[in-house]
């Protein structure tokens, strides 16, 4: 670690401590925006029931092999600029 860096770290931590101790760090924290929460109803997938789908118990196999399934058909249609993005990847 060179001297410049050491001085910088000292002032950064001293500064962070000062911000924290004077309780103004909340201002700094607000610069990092909280975007979205994620609720508790996601929890709890382990169950002991047999699945309820219409296909449960039917002998008709592999409905998922129907041809239309191969094409994504959701809100991805609302996302544009895909060709540019392909090039970027």
């Amino acid at each position: 670690m060179n001297k410049l860096n050491a001085a910088l770290l000292t002032s950064a931590i001293t500064g962070a401590l000062a911000l924290g101790l004077t309780a103004t760090s909340a201002q700094a924290a607000e610069k990092v925006k909280m975007e979205k929460c994620y609720g508790i109803s996601k929890a709890g997938k382990n169950d002991c029931q047999t699945a309820t789908s219409a296909c449960a118990g039917t002998a008709k196999k592999d409905a998922q092999k129907d041809a239309w399934i191969f094409i994504p058909a959701g809100t991805c249609e609302k996302i544009v600029g895909g060709q540019l993005a392909s090039a970027k990847k």
Binding site: D47, C48, Q49, T50, A51, T52, A56, G57
Partner: peptide, 8 residues
């Protein structure tokens, strides 16, 4: 008929 234990 087949009964399915669906808990629903």
């Amino acid at each position: 008929e087949i009964l399915i234990d669906t808990h629903n």
